[in-house]
Design a protein around this nucleic acid. Structure first.
Lengths: 173, 173
DNA sequence: TTCATTGCAAAGCGTTTGCAGTCAC
DNA sequence: GTGACTGCAAACGCTTTGCAATGAA
């Protein structure tokens, strides 16, 4: 289910730990089917209609790699000869966020970015401010910080977002 | 210089550490003078003019507690009988961000939020999604994650943003 | 004097809304 | 058949831009 790329890290000020970068290795077809069923069940349970537009948008999103914004999704569907209005895109993305199939990001701009989120572990982002390149990573220590905050402030944290912004030092990246 | 509120934390899965929440105890007057000098030097070094509007905006921002958006700053200045245009506010905030006197946030909405950042340690945010309440905290472990990312990907990280979104469990908050 | 900066209003742009027509149920 | 959903276009709200007037250097 997961392709992992792991590396033992020995920071000077912290005990060694394994950093793992995750990627899904479910087949695209498997994933498409799975999320379709999840969405279908969600719509049913919440009394929403199962329109062809909604499933077409879901399929298009899960066909896409990486982040996207509404405009590019709109154009992509248009190019694939599937006509949907922007209004329906926003509406459907809203539903997809409600059932955790899509996640929203605001990378400091006014345009929202989205990414598919099922079958992909919660991860965070390192953004290169020179090139706009985005690296995804998953550091287990963030869960520890989260646990501490929950204990300390008596809250239940349902999600988080962590972004690092930086520049490449050489051409190592 | 710093008022700190510290607490030893013993999470089950992590060695004990001290969590500290910081607050500045510089007098408002001291701080106003200090940031004015910083801004003044920045403008001079970069060939920008020292207009009264720019200093009035800086003063207004540093007079304000917590986060603000452009519209509320505009209204606040209007109420204080200082006329500035929104265009000048945006322009000046841009300059203030360039010299690290103001920091920008996007709390998942399309409206940018800002906060003064000099004299205040880098901190992160816990946002209550019920009430919109914002708690600031400073967990040292985030610096360790940052250091790891820098090592691992050969980048120099100049800033980060971390938000936790959650709900209160009781009325403990 | 000169040209960066300002205020104002218009334009831009992503997103939301209103509404008549459509189609899932 | 009914009303939730869709497409379209207009409205919205935050931000940026164009431009004539202003004033810092």
């Amino acid at each position: 289910m997961w392709k992992t790329c792991s590396k033992f890290i020995y920071p000077s000020n912290f005990r060694a730990f394994k950093l793992t970068i995750f990627a899904s290795i479910m087949s695209s077809q498997e994933l498409q089917l799975k999320v379709k069923n999840i969405f279908s069940a969600y719509l049913e349970q919440n009394g929403h209609r199962k329109t062809p537009e909604r499933f077409a948008i879901l399929a298009e999103i899960y066909d896409h790699q990486g982040h996207f914004d509404v405009e590019s999704l709109y154009l992509k569907m248009k190019n694939h000869n599937y006509r949907v209005s922007r209004a329906t895109l926003y509406n459907t993305i809203e539903l997809l966020m409600a059932c955790n199939l899509v996640r929203k990001h605001q990378f400091g701009k006014n345009q929202a970015h989205f990414e598919k989120s099922h079958g992909f572990k919660q991860h965070d982002h390192l953004i290169c401010t020179d090139t706009g390149e985005v690296i995804e990573f998953c550091d287990p220590r963030i869960q520890q910080i989260k646990a501490t905050m929950e204990e300390l402030f008596g809250v239940q944290i349902h999600h988080h977002s962590l972004y690092f912004y930086g520049v490449k030092k050489n051409n190592e990246l």
